[in-house]
Structure formats: structure tokens, C-alpha cells
Design a protein around this nucleic acid. Structure first.
Length: 479
RNA sequence: GGCCCCAUCGUCUAACGGUUAGGACAUCGGCUUUUCAAGCCGGUAAUCCGGGUUCGAUUCCCGGUGGGGUCACCA
């Protein structure tokens, strides 16, 4: 039999911030949909008016657009199962709520919030779980639409279910309670709304974080009450903070994904890194394109335990992806980044570009090198005598003699032939004979003015003949 | 506290009961044009503990320990 086409969804709340943990979950759902040629839905779960942050829906779509995570149905693009914003779907929830009332599976909560809170605190003081169903009211009055509507668990029992990542799971009766379906403000709770939405949007696979695992029995009970077959569940592990002891949060350095754009990370690198956090394909390849990731993705290979987010490996991953893009693309992206920072891209040559690419792991680092003037070879540098002599096993006079000799060796070369290769040919035999350290170190420092820099031959080519000779002369003067 | 989940190098992970427990990041050492970066080569480094089952457990079972999640008119 040909299986039902896959439909997955990513359903964030517009609370102002898309951190790497939720992005990772989105990536798993997206890769799974793409791998199976299915449908990926973006739905906004905005039933909590209190926590809603203005502009965050746009922030979510911006983040996904930047990452290149595309969706087939949802906000912006529409689709045949909309609307895709929960606050616009209130009629659906009302309809199903009425169905539950009619079936005797829902009742109005007659208590005040204070009363319920009181019981909760008592339960907590006694170190036992709070169960609303212990306080089920006897008089079942009609729902006035103002009181919260609660689900009446049809059957208190142990639930057992299958999870694509975790295998068989189960939970005891304590996990089952009469949760709120519709809040006092008329909005549904997540617990109710997502079940209805997934049903109406024909979602086949729910891929979500492990914080939902303990409320799964409640959802299953609701599916039972509505006589619906639940979608296939896949629970992915949490992303942990660097200490490995708690969920990664803003406080522990969890960044908004768009922060990584500002720092000059490539979206492919972020996706590659995040998808390998808690998942691993067969084989040992780790640097992968989106196409390769999509092709290899399998929910069954997702890890069960939480994974710590490692910025250092992310940086390395970005460097790997940065190496793989063309010079043209590199310049294009660098220009965009620098313009966003309000900076101009200074003049550069092919050699400078090569150095830049070799020495930066992010576009932000490259931008910093350019704007800090690190590769500015058109102005004179001041050289420090102590630096020229640092680590050198020779006295000043000897070093002076070496530099003078180097100057004489390269002097006859014409400006056009002043290449790194040519300079090396001229100087290297002499350096080998006299000791590389005593010749090459002072030369490099003379040309760069710095303790750390590219090698002297490359520097000479970058500087050109005149500037090279000029800098050697300056160094000779301070010695 | 109840319920639930998880457990391999520092970190991310591989190993359909039989491997010298593999790879990657990080780290350390060497080479490459005595720096830095990149690159190449190599080293250190792990199956949480205790019982079973088995000829043989990282792998299966039980029990500890540790960590996490959850017990909302938040998602």
C-alpha cells in the first residue's frame, strides 16, 4: 500500500524570539517533510495574548527565510486548510468544544482561579501532584462561555503509545487530568488547539520537543474522546546549555538565530550544525549540504538524550561552509554584511581576498579584519626594534646585515615580476644558509610591523616592490 | 514529592551480542617558509555503578546513582 503523504508542521508562538533550540526542532520537521516529499506547514500558535510580542511573527518568518527553510502551507503562503494563525481559528475550536460538550466530555469549570490555586498550593505542600479531576464539580451547569471549559477525561487509565524516536512509551494515571480546553478569555489552550489544528490540517507526523512527552496521555485521551486516530508522534531531545544541566535558554547564551546572521554565519552552516545536534546520518561525513542532509535524514536515527550546544564546533562548521563558496559569493555576502553594519568594503586584491578567506571562520571576522585596517598595505607601518629582534638568535648587527642582503637580493626584480614565488626563490637559499630564523623573522616583522602576520613572501607581493623596499629601509633605520 | 524520559572520550556522536570501542570539534605534539591562520600527519582521551541472561555484553533484563522533563486559564 502506498503510505499517506507526509504532512509535518512547525508551530511556534510569537513570543519574540527564535532561539536555536526551536530552530533545531523546525529543521528536523522540515528535513523529514522534504525527505519524504511531503508538506511542511508553518502555523502560528498565538493563543496566549499576555505573552505575545509585537512583530514576532515577522521575526519568525524572517528567520526561516534567512535559513532557507521553506514551507508549503501556512502564513504568507496560504493553503487549503487555513487560516494558519490560531487566533483566527476560534470557530473551529468552538465547534469541537461543542462536540465534546454534547458527548459529555467537557464541562464548565465553576471555580475561581484563586480556589484552584489554593488546591494547587496544598498539593504542592504535601508533595503530591495536583489533579483537578479530584475536584470535579457535581452540579454540571451549562457552559456560559465565560467560565473556562474543561475536558472530562473519558477514562482514567495507563496509556501506552509509540514514538518514532523513543520507541514505546507509557505513563500512569497521574498524567491524566481534566485540563482546560477553552480559557476564560475565549481562547483555546495549546493542549486543545493543536489537536484540532493538526486534525484539520491533516498533519500526519507531530515532531516536537520532549517537554511535551509528559502531557501526551492527555492528548491521547482527547483523541479518544473525539474518536480520532492520533498522528504519528516523534519526540526530539532538548538542546542543553553549556553546563549540560539545563535546557538552553537565553540566559545561557542561547541566541536568536538572526544574531548569527549579524555575525556572518552562513545559513547552511547553521542548519548543518543544528541538524547534527541530536541526529547523525550513516557514515562519517559531517560537513553536508542541505541536499545531502535532506537525503540522509531519518527520524529513527535521532538521539534520545539532550545535546549541548557547542559554539566552537559551530564556528568550525561555518568555516568549512565558508570555504566551499566561490570568491564571488564570498564577496557578495561580505558586502551585504558590511553594508548592513554601515561600513564600506575597502579596496582589496585577489591576494588580500585569499588571505581573508584563509583567516576567517565567519564573514564577521573577515569584515573586522578589513575594517580594522589589518590588511591595509598602502600606508607605512612603524616597526619596533625589540619586535624585530624577538626570538632571533643573532645580534643586531647580524640582523641588519641580513636585511641589507635581502634588500640587495630583491632589488633587481622588476615591479611586474615581484611575486611571492619569485621573492622566495631569491631569498630562500640565503635564509637557509644563514639560518631562517635570523633572516625571515626580521624580514616578516619589517614588512608587517606585527608579531603575527602572513609569511614574508606573500607580504612582499602584496606590498609591491616600492613599499617592500621602503619598509626594509625603515627597519634598518630603527635597528 | 508523583509521573515520565535519558546515560559511550571535555563536547557532538558511531558501533543490527563478537571491533585493538570508530569519526568530528576541542586539546597536545610534529611537519609545512622558526610568527599567526589554513593544511597535512600523529598522540592523549569514553562505554555511570552493581547484579543478572549469555560461550561472549557498550548493546538485552533488573536494581541503584546521576541528569533532564513535567505536574498552568504557557506553549
Amino acid at each position: 500500500m502506498n503510505p499517506k503523504p507526509v504532512v509535518t508542521r512547525f508551530a511556534p508562538s510569537p513570543t519574540g524570539f527564535m532561539h536555536v533550540g526551536s530552530v533545531r526542532t523546525a529543521i528536523f520537521a522540515w528535513l523529514f517533510a522534504r525527505k519524504n516529499h511531503g508538506t511542511f506547514i508553518l502555523r502560528i500558535e498565538d493563543t496566549d495574548k499576555e505573552r505575545q510580542v509585537l512583530g514576532s511573527i515577522e521575526h519568525i518568518t524572517d528567520s526561516l527565510h534567512w535559513l532557507g527553510i521553506t514551507w508549503d502551507e501556512g502564513i504568507e503562503v496560504g493553503g487549503s486548510h487555513g487560516p494558519y494563525i490560531q487566533s483566527q481559528r476560534l470557530d473551529s475550536y468552538k465547534k469541537y468544544a461543542q462536540t465534546l460538550i454534547d458527548k459529555g466530555y467537557a464541562y464548565p469549570d465553576p471555580y475561581t482561579q484563586e480556589e484552584v490555586e489554593q488546591w494547587r498550593m496544598q498539593a504542592e505542600a504535601q508533595q503530591r501532584p495536583f489533579l483537578f479531576r479530584d475536584h470535579r464539580p457535581h452540579d454540571t451547569r451549562k457552559w456560559d462561555g465565560i467560565q473556562p471549559l474543561r475536558f472530562k477525561i473519558p477514562e482514567i487509565k495507563r496509556y501506552t503509545w509509540h514514538d518514532m524516536v523513543r520507541g514505546n512509551l507509557s505513563a500512569g494515571e497521574e498524567a491524566l487530568d481534566d485540563f482546560v480546553l477553552i480559557k476564560g478569555d475565549g481562547y483555546p489552550t495549546y493542549n486543545f488547539a493543536h489537536v484540532i489544528d493538526d486534525l484539520e490540517m491533516k498533519v500526519t507526523h507531530i515532531i516536537r520537543g520532549e517537554e511535551f512527552i509528559s502531557s501526551t496521555p492527555k492528548f491521547l485521551s482527547l483523541y479518544d474522546a473525539l474518536s480520532i486516530k492520533p498522528p504519528i508522534l516523534a519526540t526530539v531531545p532538548v538542546v542543553l546549555a553549556p553546563d549540560g544541566k539545563k535546557k538552553l535558554s537565553k540566559r545561557d547564551g542561547a541566541k536568536d538565530v538572526l544574531e548569527y546572521r549579524k555575525e556572518g554565519y552562513l545559513p547552511e552552516a547553521i542548519i548543518n550544525f543544528l541538524s547534527l545536534l541530536g541526529w547523525h546520518p550513516e557514515g562519517e561525513q559531517e560537513v553536508m549540504s542541505i541536499a545531502e542532509l535532506t537525503d540522509a535524514f531519518e527520524l529513527e536515527r535521532v538521539q534520545k538524550g539532550g545535546a549541548i550546544f557547542d559554539n566552537i564546533k559551530l564556528r568550525w562548521m561555518n568555516q568549512q561552509h565558508l570555504k566551499r563558496i566561490s570568491d564571488k559569493e564570498f564577496i557578495k555576502q561580505l558586502t551585504v554584511l558590511m553594508n548592513e553594519r554601515g561600513e564600506q568594503v575597502p579596496t582589496y586584491t585577489q591576494q588580500i581576498l585569499s588571505l581573508l578567506r584563509e583567516r576567517s571562520a565567519t564573514l564577521g571576522e573577515a569584515a573586522n579584519m578589513l575594517s580594522s585596517g589589518e590588511f591595509n598595505f598602502y600606508e607605512a607601518v612603524s616597526v619596533d626594534a625589540a619586535l624585530l629582534m624577538q626570538n632571533v638568535q643573532a645580534d643586531r648587527e647580524t640582523v641588519k646585515r641580513h636585511l641589507e642582503k635581502v634588500r640587495i637580493l630583491i632589488e633587481p626584480t622588476s615591479g611586474e615580476n615581484f611575486s611571492a614565488e619569485r621573492i622566495k626563490e631569491l631569498i630562500f637559499p640565503y635564509a637557509n644558509e644563514q639560518g631562517r630564523g635570523a633572516v625571515l623573522w626580521p624580514l616578516r616583522v619589517a614588512l608587517s610591523g606585527k608579531e603575527k602576520s602572513p609569511d614574508p613572501f606573500t607580504l612582499a607581493e602584496l606590498l609591491g616592490k616600492d613599499q617592500t623596499l621602503q619598509r626594509i629601509k625603515s627597519a634598518l633605520q630603527v635597528l
